[in-house]
Amino acid sequence: MKIDVMQDVKAVNAAYAEANREKLKNIFTVNIISSPGAGKTTLLEKLVKKLADKVNIAVIEGDLATARDALRVQACGIPAIQINTNGGCHLDAKMIANVLPGFDLAKLDLLIIENVGNLVCPADFDLGEDIKIVLLSVTEGGDKPIKYPIVFLKSSLAIINKIDLLPYCDVDMYALRKDISEINPKIRQMEISCREEKNIDEVAEWFLSQIMLKKQKSIL
């Protein structure tokens, strides 16, 4: 006997994501995705320094193992919770739901979720965030957007890191940016160097404006 089912396998994650979104309705929430080593945690450290006296921030760190990243963020004076996926290649909405009670949400303006280092799977799992940010470092090579288009398609901001190393990399920045905007014409692009603290102000300003927008939306 054949039975028609037509049920979404990802519905479980989607339900958790919507519940998270409701809990985070007054907090600007971003999901940062990159390859391992692109500089997600370093960017957070630099960013938090610029933002900590203006807004209340919390961080969720996703890694296969260790609490190293959460400890790095906590050292900046920011509440951070580490999720270890024990081999899992991405964070899912249920993992986020499990750790949200660990924060005083009523006091927060900004929640940054640093996903597991991976340009593939994290793009597929809605965590309940407002937007996804994709971080790419020039040392990874300029062909990554074309090879991993989905994460660029689903992100609102692409940050290109390690531009201080451009002289040592065969990356054509013009072609790289063109590839990104061809995949996603609406994406905003920024070039930074965490090491030289270049253009971190631009990223910080963008975060502040997005936090303001979210607050206006939640009042309406």
Binding site: M1, V5, M6
Partner: peptide
């Protein structure tokens, strides 16, 4: 890629192809 419409626009929205469904069982 890049996704472009025959009208020349590249303002494209994905409306299908990201899903995983259990369609039916026997």
């Amino acid at each position: 890629f890049p996704w472009t419409c025959t009208c020349g626009s590249n303002a494209i929205e994905i409306i299908g192809g990201t899903e995983v469904y259990v369609a039916n069982i026997d």
